[in-house]
Design a protein around this nucleic acid. Structure first.
Lengths: 222, 222
DNA sequence: GGTTTGACTTTGAGCACTCAAAATACTCTA
DNA sequence: TAGAGTATTTTGAGTGCTCAAAGTCAAACC
């Protein structure tokens, strides 16, 4: 049985790898993601390599092995199903469920997870639009075609599909703006000089976001 | 923040103390309850005493302080609310929720717990009939007047209130016999020599239990 | 009163995880 | 190509929890 710590390292590696699928994850990135000093990450990664969960080359970075990836996807599945459950059943706010799920993801058994999955009708994405890996450890990558509000076409009707930030304050802000997954939007215009994007959510006022914030909101064509 | 281990020691001490409210808990009992060797229990209890959670006299046993008891009751509250939730909402069998709750009780936040409590309509007892401590750390002791099937009056209509054993196989057995909390029963007769109790659950066949098993089933008068 | 017995405590050690700080390797510039 | 700067690894130490085994205590028994 993988310890809570091991599960967290694997999950973090998986998330980092999704961000840049063809590179190995550097120790520095992993360490900051895990909130530990670099030396700790090195030690831990060597232990993970001994268990066959990652491939590690000194000074070359880490990559999950297939076994490590399977485990990581299982953790991610638990995390995202728990998030969905907290929002849909217990009525928690989508901005606060991430931290709750971080704690619960290590405590839910397969049996409970299966019940949650069934109860929710086997959802494909969580409340932030992040895809939920299947029980067999497959992760939908329909995401590849998603663009963000910082890069999509201007004046075209689109739908918000996913928000890739878990900061409660950010999520609360865009919630107040009406920019939650499922909502229809248009980008009215973009300006590189002012670093701003004018966004028009359906049935609401136009609002302006900085490029960095706009880049966190992914959209799909309707 | 109390670690998972500390929470488990406190919970176990609380349960042992309820069994014999005026004695201190011996190291031997605590160690077997926790599944550790006696030396480990001694070490741990000294640490708990340093934190002010228990009072400890070498070779005299342990007792929870008020602070320790409050913490223990909070753990017990989480445990029993989670059990109820798993049975009532996710439809798990009451025989299997104990172990699930042992894992989850350390991961649910106050916020989630409050939602669960509200969702269930603020129940007073869990699926086994065990009372749920209040959010302020009070435990109902209406239990004092409960008798068991091994000690109650003969031929008097009674209702099963509580089952004080968490063994899945035992729970499954009495479930098959129809001896779950809420069911009406009569004890037809008892025999000290054969160590047997003849029990008549309402609308079912009479069945015979050994005294030890009968003593685990608590009843209240109707 | 001495010995046995059983419960309890102490000691020394190990595992998993962490940090601080020193040592090392790589990269980039001048 | 030497030196500077940065990322990474190593080392030594500490925390929390655990065990095995040796030592201690107290009550009971002969």
């Amino acid at each position: 049985m993988a310890s809570v710590t091991v599960e967290n390292y694997l999950k973090q590696l998986c998330l980092q790898q999704q961000r840049a699928p063809d590179q190995r994850v550097s120790m520095g990135r992993l360490a900051t993601a895990m909130g530990v000093v670099p030396g700790t990450a090195t030690t831990m990664v060597k232990a993970l390599a001994d268990s066959g969960l990652v491939s590690y080359e000194p000074r070359g970075g880490v990559r999950l092995t297939r076994a490590g990836e399977q485990l990581a996807l299982h953790v991610l599945r638990r995390h995202r199903l728990v998030e969905s459950f907290l929002v849909k059943v217990l009525g928690l706010d989508w901005s606060e469920v991430h931290d709750e799920a971080d704690a619960l993801e290590h405590a839910v058994s397969e049996k409970v997870l299966e019940r949650i999955d069934a109860y929710l009708g086997r959802p494909a994405v969580d409340p932030h639009g992040d895809p939920i890996p299947t029980a067999r450890g497959k992760l939908a990558v329909a995401d590849l075609r998603l663009e963000s509000l910082a890069s999509c076409a201007i004046d075209t009707p689109l739908r918000i599909a996913r928000v890739v930030d878990q900061e409660p304050t950010f999520l609360q802000y865009i919630d107040r703006c009406g920019l939650t997954p499922g909502v229809s939007v248009k980008v009215e215009h973009r300006d590189a000089q002012s670093d701003a994007v004018a966004i028009h959510p359906h049935g609401r006022r136009v609002l302006t976001l900085g490029t960095a914030a706009a880049a966190k909101i992914l959209v799909e064509s309707i």
